[in-house]
Design a binder for these strands. Structure first.
Lengths: 159, 159
DNA sequence: TGCTATCTATCTAGCGATAGGTAGACGCCT
DNA sequence: AGGCGTCTACCTATCGCTAGATAGATAGCA
């Protein structure tokens, strides 16, 4: 799943294969099929784990006394700068219309829970949407222009 | 190129094929290769045309007396709601790390010219980054959640 | 005007590579 | 003994791309 996550975050759903992630881990593709019968199932599992971990990380930031928006910004920031990759659900979501419903639902879940988390912390719904959009978009921009500092600059106005 | 643009905007770079777009148009894939020797070349040509048209549309909005930020917002809005698809450079940019340099440079061009356009209209660089990121991210969010109205709600704060 | 040569845009056929996925055998551990 | 995990070997389908050929339009020249 780690290998799949890396590959998906770099190249999207149709940009990774069983053979590639098997080779990354040092096994054969048939072994991956043993654990995840289909590609869709694997991608959905990876997306679910990603979302859960992401929300946990936000909670951890909040526990450290961070403001809610700054907490989200920090988690996105780390995802971009530590991993050097896109947000998994951003990478998958860009081709949302082409995903199987199983995977698409997991990607939706990331965004829905994100909006939910931000509103429950006191933000208006439109503000929650704006924060999530700005973070996701800033990550994309920094990724395209290969300059991580653009994330900080593009999201400075949120803080 | 129209067919290729549609497919790329729905499924990204690795989500379209010569055979598919040939079938869309009613020819054979070999005929597409006649005009575009490689897939990279085709994608790069489509991205360039998309960027040029996009900037023209922004200029047209400005000529109509629109505020610069509102002009950008409107063009994104139309791209999402009329076409029902992602921004082409957003869809490609999400997998930027996996694109050939030829295509990646065209995607970069979209973002660089966007920032340039916004700053030359008077915005600070960080504000330009923020606007572009928010628009691109709002489009992604609306796309994933299959609700175009979320674009308006998520970008209302920009106006 | 008519012949010749070239160009354009398409076709059929097929290349090698890779995709997702499956069947059955093998070894290992309890 | 039996299940778990991995393997080899294979399948069908599709990928990007190319070869060779062809019909029709175009252009230059006698």
């Amino acid at each position: 799943m780690d290998a799949a996550e890396e590959r998906i975050r770099r190249a999207g759903y149709s940009g990774f294969s069983f053979r590639e992630i098997a080779a990354d881990v040092g096994v054969k593709s048939a072994s991956v099929h043993y654990h995840f019968p289909t590609k869709e199932r694997l991608a959905a599992a990876v997306a679910r784990r990603y979302t859960d971990r992401f929300l946990e990380a936000v909670d951890h930031q909040l526990a450290g006394g961070e403001d809610i928006v700054e907490a989200w910004r920090q988690v996105f920031r780390v995802a971009l700068q530590r991993d050097g990759r896109m947000c998994l659900c951003g990478a998958l979501g860009a081709t949302s219309q082409d995903l199987s419903s199983e995977v698409r639902e997991e990607v939706k879940r990331f965004f829905l829970l994100g909006i939910d988390n931000l509103t429950k912390a006191g933000l208006a719904r439109n503000s929650a949407l704006h924060v999530l959009a700005a973070l996701e978009g800033a990550m994309l921009t920094a990724n395209v222009l290969e300059d991580p500092s653009l994330f900080d600059k593009g999201t400075a106005a949120l803080a």
